[in-house]
């Protein structure tokens, strides 16, 4: 069962574990420093006003950092394909929940935040101009 296809590590001690994959120390330290650097970058870049792009960049950097953690700290790069599938699959399900809810909220935002629908507003103007909701006019 133990997979012989593990890529060979370069540290030269020849102390391979019985099972699993040994990630060289240099890779771990490099990944750690890279993550710190990216943290500094993400704090710095927020000072630049790019409008809507700010959150996109922040999330892209965060996703890149998370990928580094997964691949090197969590050994996912050398792990079984099903473990990789389980991890990324679960993220897909989160996105599914997020997407459908956002679609729904987006629709409601249009109907509620955009003020009363025109037909309703007409009725309100004619019949109940003093009702609080009548002031919520469409923009």
């Amino acid at each position: 069962m133990s997979s012989p296809s593990h890529s060979h590590s370069s540290h030269g001690h020849g102390e391979q574990p019985l099972v699993g994959h040994l990630v060289p120390m240099s890779t771990l330290i490099g990944t750690g420093l890279g993550l710190i650097l990216l943290t500094v970058v993400t704090v710095a870049v927020v000072e630049v006003d790019l409008g809507e792009l700010n959150i996109v960049i922040a999330l892209a950097i965060a996703a890149f950092k998370a990928t580094l953690v997964c691949l090197y700290f969590m050994h996912l790069r050398w792990d079984k394909p099903f473990n990789q599938l389980m991890f990324f699959g679960s993220i897909l399900f989160v996105l599914l929940l997020m997407l459908f809810c956002l679609m729904d909220v987006g629709q409601l935002r249009k109907t509620i935040r955009g003020g009363n629908p025109t037909g309703v507003q007409a009725v309100l103007d004619a019949e109940a101009p003093t009702a609080p909701i009548a002031k919520n006019k469409p923009q």
Partner: peptide, 26 residues
């Protein structure tokens, strides 16, 4: 075998991490 035991533990942990991701994902 130790390999079967190790792989089972690993898979179990990844499944658990998937539940953690959905837990926070919500």
């Amino acid at each position: 075998s130790p390999a079967q035991q190790f792989d089972s533990g690993k898979l179990g942990m990844w499944v658990f991490l998937a539940t953690e991701i959905l837990f926070f994902g919500a």
